[in-house]
């Protein structure tokens, strides 16, 4: 990973879904995110926010354009290489938490170490440290279903930082949370950002968006800086 290079560099990225009718969810997007950037993305429903996040997270490929992640040109990578890069570089936080309901909180957090190559002896101490870090050290053996929404999202945040990523991508992470727990989760994100992680948060919430250093708006697949 080239530390001098921006974490994210999108050049004229277009993503269209072949129809009919063909939908161009992203239209010629240019975006640069540097180390430690804190970016919020706002826009109406169906404007292309999730599509942008999927491209950034290597879950989707641009139809046209270039995407460099940490200086690496991702278009040239095969599926397994993209999976490896994703595992080590990016942490995801989803609106619906995406915790495995039959596994303990600790197991859910450990899951992120499986595919990212965290050495076995480091896995357990890291997971425990991460859970302590999000204030859930006393909930490790609980099942996610017994936790509140705010607690579940904190588990998801702990999982997202397990592989020491450079970039956290959060798609409406507070969408299922009330005002107070939203604030707690955002505090957590900002602590991570203060440590140098780049943070991208999609949100509908004006308050949440306002906390970011930088905010971009997507409308009909086009990005504009606010």
């Amino acid at each position: 990973m080239n530390s001098a290079a921006p974490v994210v560099e999108l050049v004229d990225v277009t993503r269209s879904f072949p129809g009919p009718p063909e939908v161009r969810a992203l239209k010629s997007v240019n975006l640069t995110i540097r180390r430690g950037d804190y970016l919020s993305i706002v826009g109406p429903s169906g404007s292309g926010k999730s599509t942008l996040l999927n491209v950034l997270g290597l879950l989707d490929r641009p139809t046209v354009g270039e995407y460099r992640l940490g200086g690496v040109l991702t278009g040239a990578l095969d599926e397994a290489q993209r999976a490896g890069l994703r595992a080590r570089t990016i942490g995801f936080v989803f609106q619906a938490f995406h915790l495995l309901p039959r596994r303990t909180v600790l197991d859910n957090v450990l899951l992120a170490t499986l595919y990212s190559g965290v050495p076995r002896h480091e896995r357990m101490p890291r997971a425990k440290a991460a859970l302590e870090r999000v204030g859930l050290g006393h909930r490790m053996q609980f099942m996610p279903t017994t936790l509140s929404g705010g607690e579940r999202q904190r588990v998801a945040v702990a999982r997202a930082v397990m592989a020491s990523p450079q970039l956290i991508l959060a798609d409406e992470p507070t969408g299922n949370l009330d005002q107070r727990t939203s604030g707690e989760v955002m505090d957590l994100f900002e602590e991570l950002n203060a440590d140098g992680l780049s943070l991208v948060v999609i949100t509908h919430d004006e308050k949440v968006a306002g906390r970011a250093d930088r905010s971009i708006r997507i409308a009909d697949g086009r990005v504009s800086e606010l």
């Binding site: 990973m1 080239n2 490896g84 890069l85 890291r126 020491s164």
Partner: peptide, 30 residues
């Protein structure tokens, strides 16, 4: 953040080779 969570960000040199970065995961306990 505990130091171990920041491990990766400290060591990366400016000239790190792309291939090495991309394939790094395959070495260890993956």
């Amino acid at each position: 953040l505990p130091a171990l969570l920041r491990r990766r960000r400290s060591g990366a040199g400016a000239a790190a080779a792309t291939a090495a970065t991309v394939d790094a995961t395959r070495r260890v306990d993956r």
